[in-house]
């Protein structure tokens, strides 16, 4: 995924700091103030964006733990008839918390490594003597590339470059559940 979200935000920050703010007239205090707030918000997003799922899971662990402990402490004396709603919530939370969620960096590093390994393999097949094997390799590559390109079209559709935007499936349909 190039450029990644962090790089896009870095470029936005440069533009605001080095081009937009210096060009604002001194009298435009509100615009200058809003520009600084944009910078502040973007700096927060840079810190947050790779960790959003981990943050949500941490909160889920905290609040489901608290709900479980409180329910246990109070027992049947709560007076609240939840019809088992709390138990269902806790069970759903537990199933998510048992999943291993890798760090974004870990996934990204592995994607890069597998891309690199695939590239080296393609280089080595250029000299392959067996034309049948070469054709089969080419088909595998072309099939995967078609899916990759469709996903990238969906990922960048909002830019407006693609004149055939209506033919692109929604991004969520093209990603792993």
């Amino acid at each position: 995924m190039a450029p990644d979200i962090g790089l896009r935000i870095q470029s936005i920050l440069r533009s605001i700091r080095e081009v937009i703010i210096p060009a604002l007239p001194q009298t435009e205090r509100l615009a200058a103030d809003q520009a600084q707030l944009i910078i502040g918000n973007l700096l927060i997003i840079i810190d947050q964006h790779e960790l959003i799922f981990h943050y949500a899971l941490t909160e889920l662990a905290e609040f489901s733990g608290l709900l479980r402990d409180l329910s246990h402490e109070i027992g049947d004396d709560s007076g609240e008839d939840d019809n088992g709603q709390n138990d269902m919530l806790l069970a759903r939370a537990q199933s998510l918390l048992e999943l291993h969620l890798p760090a974004y960096r870990e996934i990204d590093d592995l994607v890069r490594a597998t891309r690199g390994a695939t590239d080296r393999l393609i280089r080595s097949t250029a000299e392959h003597n067996d034309s049948v094997v070469r054709r089969r390799l080419a088909k595998l590559l072309m099939d995967q590339s078609a899916r990759q390109i469709e996903r990238e079209r969906a990922w960048t559709a909002a830019s407006g470059f693609d004149p055939d935007r209506n033919s692109i499936p929604p991004l969520a349909h093209l990603l792993r559940a």
Partner: peptide, 11 residues
């Protein structure tokens, strides 16, 4: 990052 289709196209 590498992009296998790019290598294939170059070949």
């Amino acid at each position: 990052e590498e992009y296998p289709l790019m290598r294939f196209a170059e070949q």
